[in-house]
Design a protein around this nucleic acid. Sequence first.
RNA 1: GGCCCUAUCGUCUAGUGGUCUAGGACACAGCCCUUUCAAGGCUGCGACACGGGUUCGAAUCCCGUUAGGGUCACCA
Length: 512
Amino acid sequence: MSIRTRFAPSPTGYLHIGGVRTALFNWLLRQRLGGQFILRIDDTDVERNQAEALQPILDGFRWLGIQWDEGPEVGGPYAPYFQSQRLATYKEAALKLLATGHAYPDYMTKEELDADKKKADAAKKPYVHRGPHRDTPADECVKLYEANPTTLRFKVPVGRKVVVEDLVRANCEQSTDLMGDPVILRANGIALYNFASVVDDAALKITHVVRASEHLANTYSQKLFLEALGLPIPKYAHIPVVNYKGEKMSKRKLPPLTEDERQKLRMLGWTDEEITTSGINIATVAFYKEMGYLPEAIINYLGRLGWSLDDKTEFLRLKDMISHFDMETGIGRVTKAPGEFDTKKLFWLQDEYMKLLSVEEKVTNCIPFLKRAKLISETPDEATLTLLSRIVTASGDRLKLFSDILQYGAPIFKAEPEYNAKSVEKRLKKPGAADLLREFAVVLAATESFDAATLDKAMHEFCAAKNVKLGDMVHPVRVATTGVEVGFGLFDTLEILGKQRVLERIEKALSL
RNA sequence: GGCCCUAUCGUCUAGUGGUCUAGGACACAGCCCUUUCAAGGCUGCGACACGGGUUCGAAUCCCGUUAGGGUCACCA
């Protein structure tokens, strides 16, 4: 069996995380069953589209490893894949419906429409639009339209039920008496999404339309279009929307970035203005890329949101998902209710995937972040890379996002530590702390081999001799050498810093 | 508001009439380990929305109620 699925984003300037999930299910089905996954750009609303708004979407998919068989930049046998370049096709289809009596010109003005709606509202009746020329014979409609082109509406047949067979939610039906005649062609001759979409699905020979359930209500009229056009009806699968705080996750109503996240973005070279105007947030793929998430973690999380393999599998790589994602165990097991987007669970998966990486892999992924933060040069030398490798090793499981390297690497890559005022107050200004630190510096200066094990032993002995708790030394030394209270193992830190820098920093800290 | 869809722990889910005193995971809480932060180990908390049927038996089937979501554009 060979299938053709598609994802049809609008060029909005960013790739939405919910859209990725929809695309993923389309893509998985195609990978499992064979065929093509098509990327089609729905840009019929010329006023809202900008040319550069597509690139982030393409970049996002590439980063996530979701490749398309046909579409922008790769082309394909049904090109072009931009709806703005296929306008003539839609108009032709609309005119065909006009000629066959399935559509009619509608000269009602917006004001008249609004008035009718208001009247229906007042009467507490549903507004179902039926234009004056609904029953005008087809040939007259054509003449009217040719003489005076205007909006074209589809003539919804009355007294019928439209049944949509859905792969996720079985049969869904709607009475045509509740469906107003939808506009299929604007007065300017450009088709509306709802109409263009089915014309294209047919033209691109799409066999399975997998999309978010917000499109279910559109499907009834779309099925009517296809019937009137004499085109085949694809299989539909309406997957539940992704919710956030109980509502469809959209660019609005999302939490602001945390101060920690903003700080990371600043270190990566973002200005506050860019952070605000870019609209980067947890609904955008760009956010996860900037924070240094692993594509695998995002894919795994999204795949398990609204779908499960069995009663215990949480961990699924792309290849595992593909092997299980057929009609029955794949799309057939997708849940029907909306799913809440859980950033905590995504983060947990991220951690799990991070643990699987070797030090070398982590280093490779951390380098771009350090370069952008100017903590290392564009062409780091061998010594820098070795140092980075030691930092990554010492950081271990603490490195959950690649951007975390900024936090762990800064105290070491920067010439001077940035002393946190609170930490200095708490750990260095404590009575007796300075004296102990001064004495311990002497011990350090005398230490022959400056490695973690030796330093560990030295500090333990020092504490025993002075009759103080280990913590009474660890904290001041950490703050003195790194400026902050949080970091990976202290003795690893000292070893990586080296004797000279450690002593210099302690001296500097004592002068604060 | 009309229409459509949906309804198992806070969240993601398993469950398709008896194997369910409902399983797993995240989150959360406590304890242990520990130089901070992580990680790890152990323990705990916690759900079949409600009401009627059908049935020997219902989380599972039917009906109603309630709640949530989606949609009602010359947006996509």
